[in-house]
Simulated scan of single mutants.
Amino acid sequence: MADHGLKFEIESKTVAEFRSLDKSGELILQPEYQRQAVWPERAKVSLMETILLGYPIPEIYLSYETSPEGEQTASVVDGQQRLTSLLGFLNNKFPLDGLEDEQLREKFEGKFFKELPDDVRQEFFQYRFPIRRLSNLADEFVRAVFARVNRVNMVLTEQELRNALLPGPFNDFLKDCSAHEISSLSGVFSGERRKRGGDLEFYAEVFGTCIFGLSNKKAELNERYDKISSDFEDYRDRAAEFLKLLTYLGDTVKWVGRTRWSNIVDMFTLLHSSWGLREDLYGAGQGRATQVRELLDLFQRAVSVRKRKGENGEAAGLLESLAAMTGITVTEAESVVDDYTSGIRNSSDLGSRRVRSQQLTFLLSKKLAS
C-alpha cells in the first residue's frame, strides 16, 4: 500500500459551525478542481428533510490548511453539493417544497428556513455532519482524494475528473474557449452541460481532432487530453490559432435563432473543417467572408430540410442555390447534402465524422476556389 503520509482524522461539525466557517470566509466551497453546484431543488429539499428528521448523512471530506500566520481554511473535497444546499437553505434561497414525510409536510411544506419555529431552527443548527479531515496535504494528494472518492461514488463525469486531476494551462485554454462569444452565440451548450464540464470536453475533443485528426471519441479522447495537458507548451501556438478561428466563425456565421450549428455534432464538424481551411478563410477578405456566411447558412438549411424530409420543392430550391454558389451540379449538391445528413446518425462514430467533415470541406473549398 502506498504511503503518502495521508491522515484522515474523523470528527464532526454542526450546521451552526459550518455557517460560522462560511461567514468568516474560512470555508472554501468550490476549490478550483470542484464542479459547479448542480443539484436540483428536489435534491436540496430532500437533504433538508433528512436533517429535520435527524437521519444520518454521508461524511464530508474537508482539507485544512494552516498558514505560518495561523490563518486556517477548510476546502471542501467531497460534499460541496450538500454544503452549498445547506447554506442556501439557511440563507432562505429556497423553500421546503415537495417534502416526503407526512408529518413534516403538514408542518413545514412551503416554508423557508426563517419561517420555521425557533425550537426547530435551533435543533437544525445542532445537527452534526460526519467529517473526514485532511490536514496540510499537498495539492496533488487532495486532488487525488477528490477524484478517487467521486469515482467510487460514480457522481462525477469524465470531464469533472479531468478538471480535478489535470489543472494547468490546457485546462485554462479550454475555459477560454468555453467563455468565447461563439459559445453563447451558437447556443450549443445547455446550462446542465456547462455545469458538468461538457463544454470543456467538447472543446478538448475538437482541438485534439484538429491537431491529431479524426478519431472515435471514446477510444482516444483521454489519451489525447493527457498528452496535450502534459506538453501544452508544444501546442500553445495552435491553441492561439484555435481561438482566432472561434473569433472568425463567431463573426462570420449567421447566428439567427437555432441552426444546425447549434447542435454539438454540426458545430464539431464546422470547427474541424474550418481548421483545415483557416488560412484560405482568413485571406479571402470581407467580401468572401460574406459569401462563406451565406454558403454555411444555405447548407445548414438544406441539411435540416433533408433531415426532416421536407417538401421536395423546398429541398430542390436550396440545392439549386447551393450548386450555383459553389459551381457544382445540382446532382453533386444533392449527394453532398445526403451524405452529410447520413453522417449525422451514429454521430461519434469515426466513419460518420469523416463523412461529415469531407462533405463540408468539399463545399467550402469549392467556394474559396471560385
Score class of each variant (00 low, 15 high):
76 V>T: 12
78 D>R: 12
40 P>W: 08
76 V>D: 11
77 V>A: 06
31 P>Q: 03
31 P>F: 11
47 L>M: 11
42 R>M: 07
83 L>I: 12
59 E>D: 15
41 E>R: 14
83 L>V: 06
78 D>F: 08
58 P>Y: 02
58 P>N: 00
72 Q>T: 13
49 E>T: 13
34 Q>A: 11
58 P>Q: 00
70 G>P: 07
61 Y>S: 05
50 T>G: 09
66 T>F: 02
57 I>M: 11
48 M>G: 09
50 T>R: 00
30 Q>T: 14
43 A>M: 13
45 V>E: 04
63 S>V: 03
53 L>H: 00
61 Y>T: 09
61 Y>R: 08
33 Y>E: 13
45 V>K: 01
32 E>M: 13
53 L>E: 03
52 L>F: 02
46 S>G: 11
83 L>R: 01
82 R>C: 09
66 T>V: 11
56 P>V: 11
59 E>Q: 15
67 S>C: 01
53 L>M: 08
48 M>Q: 07
68 P>D: 01
56 P>Y: 09
75 S>F: 14
38 V>F: 12
57 I>F: 13
54 G>Y: 10
76 V>G: 10
59 E>W: 10
37 A>D: 12
44 K>Y: 02
41 E>I: 10
49 E>M: 10
79 G>I: 07
69 E>K: 09
83 L>K: 03
77 V>W: 06
39 W>Y: 09
48 M>T: 05
53 L>K: 05
49 E>F: 09
44 K>I: 01
36 Q>C: 14
58 P>I: 02
40 P>I: 03
70 G>S: 04
44 K>F: 01
37 A>F: 15
36 Q>G: 15
73 T>Q: 00
37 A>T: 14
55 Y>V: 08
81 Q>L: 04
59 E>R: 15
55 Y>P: 00
33 Y>A: 07
50 T>A: 05
41 E>H: 14
31 P>K: 08
39 W>T: 02
76 V>Y: 09
39 W>P: 07
31 P>M: 11
34 Q>P: 01
45 V>W: 00
34 Q>T: 08
75 S>R: 15
55 Y>T: 06
64 Y>R: 15
